[in-house]
Simulated assay, not measured.
Amino acid sequence: MSAGTLAGSHWLLLDVPSAPDATWRLQEQFAGVQAEVLFDDTELHGLGEHSPLLLDLRRAGGLVSLCHLDPQAWPGLVLISSASAEQLLAHLRRMLTVTLGLHHKALLNYYNPHTASYFFDGCDPQELSCWLGPISQVRWFGGTWADRAIGSLGWQQLTNPGLPVTALENEHSLSDRQQCQLQQCLLERHAWRWSRAIGRDYHLLWKRFQEGMGLGFTEQALLDDWLWLRLQHPDARPVPKLEGRSPREYLDQLRRAWQGGPG
């Protein structure tokens, strides 16, 4: 179903943290457009300068064109909804804070195009019906970090299945699959940043990341240390871990083995 066949108003949830200059451009080019600060009236209200902005595209026709012509300068989610502005804002604000497991709470930056590409892919039709709620359709220009590494970002589109579900709760719990998808997003972003920083192929670095995680180096500091070591010794083979050694001790064991020191 194309966006043009869906009834409802069009909105842009502008991902300000991904493009801080967008706020300035918005003020310069679309000064008359009312921008709703998503963090207002939430526990995140003190971080308003880092908040995404909800813009009514009916009042900014030129912005609609810019979103499509230069989507990376105006990142975020294009939403279609028949709900009132107040109803849509209330739902989007409920999506901000989620529960992980029994005792952990986190900010879900679903308005970021990369995060959206992982998070919504982790939803089954019932979950998607719940998370989208009054939103008929959501579109964004993005993809995975692997997609970005090879220059294959593109427009993504999801239509609300509209299944009968209960309304999204405050601090809604994430499913195991959703959590895995978000963890994958963080890991792949880390590998992408490494590839940019040292000028190495993303897929090679991701392969080395996976190898390190398979050896038990799951903490970021350890994973980074492993990667440095692995890049210095690309042809070395991991030696068996000595019994009782922690991941840090095992990494030191590998370093000594590959550098020719005593075990």
Rank of each mutant, 00 (worst) to 15 (best):
L6F: 15
A7E: 15
G8V: 10
G8T: 14
W11A: 03
L12G: 03
L13K: 08
L13S: 13
D15A: 14
P20Y: 15
T23C: 08
L26T: 07
L26C: 07
A31N: 11
V37G: 01
L38F: 15
D41N: 14
L44C: 02
L44D: 01
L47I: 00
L53H: 04
L54V: 05
D56T: 15
R58Y: 08
R59H: 11
R59P: 04
G62A: 00
G62P: 09
L63G: 00
S65M: 09
P71C: 09
A73P: 08
V78N: 11
V78T: 14
I80V: 15
S81M: 02
A83V: 03
L88G: 01
L92A: 11
R93A: 03
R93D: 01
R94M: 13
L96F: 09
L96G: 02
T97A: 11
K105I: 08
A106N: 05
Y110I: 15
N112K: 12
H114T: 06
T115F: 10
Y118G: 00
F119R: 07
D124W: 03
D124A: 12
Q126G: 05
S129A: 03
C130P: 00
Q137W: 05
R139E: 12
G142Y: 11
G142V: 06
G142L: 03
T144G: 04
W145F: 05
A146G: 08
D147N: 05
D147L: 03
D147T: 01
I150S: 13
G151P: 10
W155K: 09
Q157H: 03
Q157G: 02
T159L: 06
N160G: 00
N160R: 00
P161C: 01
G162E: 02
P164T: 06
V165I: 06
A167M: 09
A167C: 11
L168S: 13
N170M: 13
H172V: 06
D176E: 14
Q178W: 02
Q178K: 04
Q179D: 05
Q184L: 10
Q184M: 09
Q184E: 10
L187E: 12
E188A: 02
R189M: 01
H190K: 07
H190L: 09
A191S: 09
A191E: 06
A191D: 02
W192L: 03
A197C: 04
Y202C: 00
H203R: 13
H203S: 13
Q210Y: 08
M213H: 12
G214N: 05
G214F: 04
L215P: 00
F217H: 00
E219Q: 05
L223H: 05
L223I: 00
L223T: 08
D224P: 04
D225L: 10
W226C: 04
L229C: 03
R237S: 09
P238G: 01
K241G: 09
E243M: 14
R245D: 11
P247R: 00
Y250S: 00
L254V: 11
A257L: 07
Q259K: 07
Q259H: 09
P262F: 06
P262H: 14
